[in-house]
Each structure stands twice: as structure tokens, then as C-alpha cells.
Simulated scan of single mutants.
Amino acid sequence: MQSQAQEERTLAKLSHYDDKGQAHMVDVSAKTATKREARARAFVELSPEALAALPDNPKGNPLEVARFAGIQAAKQTSTLIPMCHALALSFVDVDVRVVESGVAIEATAMTVAGTGVEMEAMVAASTAALTVYDMTKALDKGIRIREIELVFKSGGKSGEWRR
């Protein structure tokens, strides 16, 4: 169990909490707008039968629908994640491809702003993965969505980071 002092130090590091421990939206108005980019990925594990049936899906091409869903989701991030800032995205792309044992997804988001686009990339990758799930669930009850993670970010005072 954490002491009150440890808890206060933890809260001080988490920028979405005020000094009373209440969640709030971070004020980024004083931050310099810089070019920011983030990439996230997800993996959808499918059975060999579901993978083989992907091109013949009666709902349409699941990979293309997932790509569009991810792009649209990135633009809606601030309505889904309560403390996210609404960002004017300069670019969003979602790459969805069949690989051994499933579908690999990588989402990229870019902006010029005072805050980063990590959440937009993560929401894009997650939503694309959920869309693949939705469009293939009739073929495979054991689908797993795995490894939703940030793989790269750049811009702002923390600079570049890679997984």
C-alpha cells in the first residue's frame, strides 16, 4: 500500500490530475505547436480458415473497411477519450495487411499542435482491429486482438521515442 506522500508524488507525475487528485484536462495553451507524429499497431489473430475466407467476406473487404474505420476513429478520439484534446489532424493512415496467423495493423497520425497524437494513432489501430473482428466473427469465435501498442512518437519537448 502506498503512503500518502508516495501517492502525491505519483499524482504529480500524472498530468491529468490536479493537486487534489481530481481528473482534469491538461492546459496546453502555453505549449509551442510543433510537428508531431505517432505510430501504433495492433494484431488480430485469426484461424487459418478465417484468414483464407477474408477476400470472400459477404460484408465486403474487411481490410479496406478496417482501414477506413481506423482513419475515421482517429478523427473522433477526443469524443471517445474524455481528457484528450480535439486536434486538427494533418494526416492519418492505417495499413492493414494479412500476415501469418492474422492481420497486422499499423496506424500513423500527424499534426502540428501543442500536444501529441499518440491517442489518435492508438484509437485508429484499436478500431481497425475491432473492425476486422466484427467482419470475421462469424467465421471464427476464437479471434484475439493483441499487442495494441505505441511504437513511435516524435515532436514536442520529449522529442522522439521508439519501442
Rank of each mutant, 00 (worst) to 15 (best):
Q2H: 14
Q6C: 08
Q6V: 09
E7V: 06
E8M: 13
A12T: 13
A12D: 15
L14Y: 02
S15L: 15
H16R: 14
H16P: 04
Y17D: 03
G21L: 07
G21R: 11
Q22E: 13
A23D: 04
M25P: 03
V26P: 10
V28P: 05
S29H: 08
T32N: 11
T34Q: 08
T34P: 05
A38F: 02
R39E: 04
A40H: 01
A42S: 10
A42Y: 00
A42C: 03
V44T: 00
L46Q: 14
L46G: 06
A52C: 08
P55V: 08
N61W: 07
L63Q: 06
E64W: 10
A66D: 01
A66V: 01
F68I: 15
G70T: 05
A74V: 04
K75C: 13
Q76I: 01
T77E: 09
S78Y: 12
T79S: 15
T79L: 11
C84A: 15
L87N: 00
F91A: 14
D93N: 15
D93A: 15
V94T: 02
V94N: 02
D95C: 05
V99Y: 01
E100T: 11
E100A: 14
S101E: 15
A104P: 00
I105E: 00
I105C: 02
A109E: 03
T111A: 14
V112Q: 15
V112E: 15
A113P: 01
G114I: 01
T115C: 10
V117F: 05
E120G: 06
A121P: 00
A121H: 04
A121F: 01
S126P: 07
A128Q: 00
A129L: 03
T131I: 09
Y133L: 03
D134H: 09
M135F: 13
T136A: 10
L139D: 09
D140H: 08
K141S: 14
K141P: 13
K141I: 03
G142T: 12
I143C: 05
R144D: 06
R144F: 00
R144S: 11
L150K: 03
L150W: 02
V151S: 01
V151T: 12
G156F: 05
G159R: 10
G159E: 07
E160N: 13
E160V: 14
R162T: 13
